[in-house]
Design a protein around this nucleic acid. Sequence first.
DNA 1: TGAAGTATACTTGTATACAAGTATTATAAC
DNA 2: GTTATAATACTTGTATACAAGTATACTTCA
Lengths: 243, 243
Amino acid sequence: MTEPKEFLYPEKWLSKASAGDRVACELRMQIISGLIESGTILSENKLAADFAVSRSPIREALKILASENMIRLERMGAVVIGLTEKEIEEIYDVRLLIETFVFERLVKMDTHELVNELSKIHEMMKVAIKFKDADEFSYQDVLFHETIIRAINHSYMLMIWNNLKPVMESLILLSMRARFKEKYEDFTRIVENHELYIEAIKTRDRTLMVRSLHQNFDDVQGKVEDLWMSQQMLSKGVELEDE
Amino acid sequence: MTEPKEFLYPEKWLSKASAGDRVACELRMQIISGLIESGTILSENKLAADFAVSRSPIREALKILASENMIRLERMGAVVIGLTEKEIEEIYDVRLLIETFVFERLVKMDTHELVNELSKIHEMMKVAIKFKDADEFSYQDVLFHETIIRAINHSYMLMIWNNLKPVMESLILLSMRARFKEKYEDFTRIVENHELYIEAIKTRDRTLMVRSLHQNFDDVQGKVEDLWMSQQMLSKGVELEDE
DNA sequence: TGAAGTATACTTGTATACAAGTATTATAAC
DNA sequence: GTTATAATACTTGTATACAAGTATACTTCA
């Protein structure tokens, strides 16, 4: 009846991760995908039983998720916050804020090496699309933006990114998995947009950069829709399994 | 010979804190004040012995400090990063970024209540100065900025703030303690600047806001100097104790 | 003397135990 | 039936134990 648990988070990304990290990643995916509804109260002991680990890694995971605003640690139990449309927009506010700042630094730097790296990632993304590998595509997409941020060597911008990254990653993963199934044609636009971004950095063209960022931002609505879509797909799957 | 340990972090701020939080706060102060030099390798076991607690709260503290960029968790031992002038400037980059964003939201909102709250805090600050209470002044200063950020109800901006806050707090604490001793006259300017900030919010005056933020930013140099001053004061104290 | 391997003393991550505190529920008194 | 009190079943935070891994230092052999 109950098969060995299937995980939402790509297991190959967890090769060297601790049990705590694994739990955090999986819980995050379950929260963002809506599998765990917001408002749910998580208990350390129950989670420990569910994931078949002790309370130590669970505690670690809950601390991580709390710092990402996924849950709220209260006196008794951890309350799931999750992502509403408002929160997703907020995440993109932050991304916009960071990347605008980063671009202003980049225009004062030598970006040859960065552009080269980004081009490589860009190629990788195209391959991932060709082979319909949503997880790989997501990985490269996240890496693309992280690479840009790392380029300016700003430890506190990186700190913000590190806080935002896990949620972004999960969001992108879920969104891309849904799109690969239902809106494959979207990827042409996404790839073009990344091309635009590289071009903006190469030519130090603020206007182009703003346009590309904006276009990316407009994708938010898409992402939100995909998320709901992905949530429905998942809940359908669960229902089918239950039968 | 060795007296009961004296802590840098105000103990009354820790009334309800766990052992892990206490350790994190104290270590943070020691790192930022330069008492623990950057490059130092911290061992869980040694820290546990020093603070007379078990490894559990120490682990918690190290995780917290790592997420704040105070230390870097490596395979063996936690390496202290600390704050150079570069990092302090970076922190202010982030504060500038956040508060500019927040202001843009504020001008579209009803700020009556906020202005009222800020005025209260402002009065508190003046009292703290009058009674030469550096810790209380720092508390109100941090609260001032947190109140502004909270006003726009943006969970991810708040997340960034929460990440930045502990370091800012320590920085301000050390700086203010030094100034109360050596540059008491500075506080006139600081108070005026906060007044300007409130006025900018009340009148929705972008120019004023930028000016006030900038002035605050110019204080950074001062803060850095105070930090080095505070470090010297502390190390002198240690030397004297050692004799 | 130098290189290779082994021992040891550390490290982290996880499990488990326990104390102290807090909701919930059941019971008893009115 | 309602309220007050007590029992219980949870919760968190901390301590401790242990397994597995890694750097350091030491020994042994060439």
